Simulated assay, not measured.
Amino acid sequence: MKVAAVQLRAREHRDETIARAAELISEAAAEGAKLVLLPEFFAIPFVQPEPDPGYIRYAERLDGPSNTMAAEMSAKHGITVVSSVFEGTDVPGVFHNTAVTFVNGSKVDEYRKSHLPFSNGFPEKYYFRPGARAPRAVGTGDLRVGTIICYERHFPELSRTAALDGAEVLCVPVASASAPMKEVFQLELRAHAVFNQLYVVCSNRVGLEQTKDYFGLSAVYGPDGSVLAQVSDGAEGVAVAEIDLEALHATRMKRPFFRDRRPELYGALTEL
């Protein structure tokens, strides 16, 4: 089985970016990918350092143009597509940062970003209400997929939660442009893969958006932390890699991290 990370630059107009994303999904599907991940808010510019009330013009419902394209591509190619949108709701002033998973054209999961930064040039708390549900593993027919979003990669509890629910692949859509974070970006993703013995697929934006220069590094990581495929620096494209679920489960038997956990000792992690 193959999985793919899409690396994409936001255009001036949303419909142009959506069309380009569709092309890249088709490219990944043509290479055999059965799971394709899009970057965080792939169709629109991402937030800038200064809060801007006008940014809410980019909000869309879960059945808006971004997810409509993702669902259509999922159905057309018979694959799983994980999308990411600035979700508007029926409640005035309430918005979410939401990832949606489509399998063969049908929505099977929506995960709202629960950990929101207001630091390092990303004032997301200004715009979004945090999600109230933990990540979970979603069955796609071929594998079980968990999703966390960007800033949440700094919180190992979230990926472990998805892994304990049976995730074999962790999808991480990101919008990462911070120079200091670039130094530890891959280190964190590799650690999630190793500690949880799963594959990690990470899709980042690329290119300059006002004050932010997104560095890409979209990739697929193996359970041993190795980089299995990566998009070239500064370019749009797809990273497609083959994954081996039998080998994954064999690794979990040889290195039984989940067997040797001691949850009774971890109470301090959830105490307020």
Rank of each mutant, 00 (worst) to 15 (best):
Q210A: 12
A241V: 02
G237S: 04
Y199T: 00
G166W: 05
A191T: 09
R252N: 10
G32S: 07
F185A: 01
T270W: 07
E209S: 11
L24T: 01
A229K: 07
E209K: 06
N97E: 14
P263E: 07
A134N: 14
E23Y: 04
Q7E: 07
E12S: 10
L187M: 11
V108R: 14
V3T: 04
Q230I: 14
I56V: 15
E183N: 08
N196L: 04
Y266L: 15
E209F: 07
R136Y: 03
E271V: 07
L38A: 10
N104Q: 13
V6T: 08
D90N: 12
V108N: 02
V206H: 13
A167I: 06
R259A: 13
S176F: 01
L265K: 12
A28D: 00
E168S: 05
V200C: 03
E16I: 03
A28Q: 01
E157P: 02
L158S: 01
D142A: 13
G139W: 11
L158K: 08
H115F: 12
D15F: 15
N204V: 03
G105Y: 09
V145W: 11
G141N: 08
V94D: 02
N120W: 12
G32F: 02
A137W: 03
E40A: 13
N97M: 14
A71Y: 09
G78V: 09
G237R: 00
T80L: 03
I148F: 05
D52P: 07
D213A: 12
V172E: 06
E188N: 11
R205Y: 07
K107M: 15
E27Y: 04
